[in-house]
């Protein structure tokens, strides 16, 4: 009975053991995939978010001016 239990426990470990041998060291590969297009997308996104932020800022500032009048 004891041997059976330890066998089952060992068999649960097998996937982890085999994985550890096959995997390469983990690196931040996502941003280097597909010809680094993700870098371009992140740059465009930053520029666009800055522009929208500026528009929101202008909008709020204008509202304050309108209230004063």
């Amino acid at each position: 009975m004891k041997i059976k239990l330890s066998l089952i426990l060992f068999s649960l470990l097998i996937p982890f053991l085999s994985n550890a041998q096959e995997l390469e060291p983990e690196m931040a590969d996502v941003f280097r995939n597909d010809g680094k297009i993700y870098v371009v997308i992140s740059v465009i996104s930053i520029i666009f978010l800055c522009l929208i932020g500026y528009l929101v800022y202008l909008d709020i500032k204008l509202r304050k001016l309108e209230k004063r009048n």
């Binding site: 371009v40 997308i41 465009i44 996104s45 666009f48």
Partner: peptide, 14 residues
């Protein structure tokens, strides 16, 4: 407007 353009900026590339 901001959401739609943001979506097209990202998905237009991908």
């Amino acid at each position: 407007a901001a959401l739609l353009i943001f979506y097209t900026l990202v998905w237009g590339m991908l």
